[in-house]
């Protein structure tokens, strides 16, 4: 499946948002999802919905985290 994740085209086998989340953050070794959020096609998907949200070709996904800022 072809997705656009954070502006980059990506081939992914992830069927759900939760699977994509785990794929994208595997190397970050996160204790929880605090400080992170996901939008699918311009709409925020709340964390409890990630596992129930399936992905389709050409979906645009934004995965963000809180950063230092002014």
């Amino acid at each position: 499946m072809k997705l656009i994740v954070n502006g980059q085209e990506r081939d992914s086998a992830a069927a759900t948002l939760d699977a994509l989340w785990r794929e994208e953050t595997a190397e970050l070794d996160l204790p929880n999802t605090k400080g992170f959020a996901i939008a699918l096609n311009g709409k925020v998907v709340r964390q409890p919905e990630w596992a129930k949200t399936s992905l389709s070709d050409d979906d645009r996904v934004e995965i963000i985290r809180a950063f230092a800022g002014g």
């Binding site: 954070n6 502006g7 980059q8 994208e24 953050t25 970050l28 992170f36 959020a37 934004e62 995965i63 963000i64 985290r65 809180a66 950063f67 230092a68 800022g69 002014g70």
Partner: peptide, 9 residues
């Protein structure tokens, strides 16, 4: 204050 950025950063 904090900002919000893509995780790739």
């Amino acid at each position: 204050t904090l900002s919000v950025r893509r995780i790739s950063l």
